[in-house]
Amino acid sequence: MKVIFLKDVKGKGKKGEIKNVADGYARNFLFKQGLAIEATPANLKELE
């Protein structure tokens, strides 16, 4: 799953980066902790 990092995550990505991560990792950790959001077309447009 592609995500947009909202904060730096050690060993995974830095704020503003778009990366592929495991679905479970994204849903169970990154999204719940507010560290990333899903890289949907709408979210990508907001990032620009």
Rank of each mutant, 00 (worst) to 15 (best):
L30T: 00
K14W: 09
K2Q: 11
L35W: 11
G13L: 02
N28L: 11
K45H: 10
I18T: 06
A26D: 06
A42N: 12
M1R: 08
F29Y: 14
D23P: 15
K45S: 11
N28M: 11
L6V: 09
G34Y: 08
E46A: 15
L6I: 11
G13E: 02
I18S: 03
A42I: 10
E46N: 13
K32F: 07
L47V: 10
A36S: 01
A39T: 03
L47P: 06
G13V: 06
N43V: 12
A22G: 10
K7N: 06
I4R: 04
I37H: 04
V3E: 01
K14H: 10
F31A: 02
I18D: 01
F29T: 09
R27N: 06
L6M: 08
I37A: 07
L44V: 10
K7L: 09
L30F: 04
L47G: 07
I4G: 00
K7M: 12
N28K: 11
F29D: 05
G11E: 05
K10L: 13
A42M: 11
K19G: 07
L35T: 02
K2R: 14
P41D: 13
R27I: 14
N20I: 15
I4A: 02
E38T: 04
T40A: 04
P41V: 13
K12Y: 15
L6H: 01
V3I: 09
I4V: 09
G34E: 05
F5E: 01
A26W: 11
D23H: 13
K45D: 09
G11Q: 04
A39R: 01
A39D: 02
E38D: 04
P41Q: 11
K12P: 01
A26P: 01
T40R: 04
M1S: 05
V3W: 01
I4H: 01
F31T: 04
F5R: 00
L6N: 01
V3G: 00
A42V: 09
E17S: 05
L6E: 00
L6F: 03
A22W: 10
Y25I: 07
A39Q: 02
L44W: 06
A36E: 00
L47W: 15
K10P: 15
V21S: 02
A22H: 13
L30W: 03
K10M: 11
K10R: 14
Q33R: 14
K32T: 11
D23G: 13
K45F: 12
M1P: 04
V9N: 01
L6Y: 02
F29V: 14
V21E: 03
K45V: 09
Q33I: 08
E38L: 10
I4S: 01
D8N: 12
N43H: 10
F5A: 01
I37S: 04
K32W: 07
N28I: 08
G11F: 08
Q33F: 15
Q33W: 15
F29N: 06
A39S: 04
G16Q: 02
V3F: 00
D23W: 14
A22D: 15
G11D: 08
E38H: 07
N28E: 13
I4P: 00
K32P: 15
L35A: 04
A26H: 04
E46G: 12
Y25P: 05
L30A: 01
V3Y: 01
P41F: 11
K2D: 09
Q33Y: 15
E17F: 02
V21F: 07
K2P: 08
G13A: 11
N28R: 12
K14Y: 12
K19V: 13
K2F: 14
T40F: 05
G13I: 05
I4M: 08
N20R: 14
G16K: 02
K2I: 13
D8W: 07
E48R: 12
G24A: 14
T40S: 10
E38I: 08
I37P: 00
K32Y: 07
A26E: 09
I18E: 03
E17Y: 03
K45T: 09
I18L: 07
E17R: 02
Y25L: 08
V21D: 01
I18M: 07
I37M: 10
F31L: 11
A26N: 03
I4K: 04
E38V: 07
F31S: 02
F5H: 00
Q33H: 15
A42D: 12
N28V: 07
A42Q: 13
N20G: 07
L44R: 07
G34R: 08
K2M: 15
A22V: 09
A36W: 01
R27Q: 09
K15N: 04
A22R: 12
G13P: 00
E17N: 05
N28Q: 11
Y25M: 06
K15S: 07
R27Y: 11
E46T: 13
K19N: 04
G24V: 12
R27H: 08
N28Y: 14
K12W: 15
V21N: 00
I4W: 03
A42S: 12
E48L: 14
L35P: 00
A26L: 12
N43I: 13
L47A: 08
V9Q: 02
K10F: 12
K7G: 05
I18P: 01
L6T: 06
D8K: 04
L30I: 01
G11W: 08
V9W: 05
I18R: 02
G34W: 06
R27F: 10
L47H: 11
K7Y: 11
E17G: 02
K19H: 09
E48H: 13
G24M: 12
L35N: 02
K12L: 15
A42E: 14
K12V: 15
V21L: 05
F5L: 08
F5T: 00
E46R: 14
F5G: 01
L47M: 12
I37T: 06
G16F: 10
A22S: 15
K2G: 05
K14S: 10
R27E: 07
K14D: 05
I18N: 01
I18F: 04
E38N: 03
G16P: 01
K14N: 09
D23L: 14
V3D: 01
K19I: 09
D23E: 15
I4L: 11
A22K: 11
K19S: 07
G16M: 05
K45M: 12
Q33M: 15
V9T: 03
K19L: 10
L47Y: 15
G13H: 11
E38Y: 06
A42L: 11
G34T: 04
E17D: 12
F5P: 01
G34P: 00
T40Q: 04
E46W: 15
L47D: 06
F5D: 00
V21A: 03
K19T: 07
K19E: 03
K10Y: 13
K12I: 15
K32L: 12
T40K: 05
G24I: 13
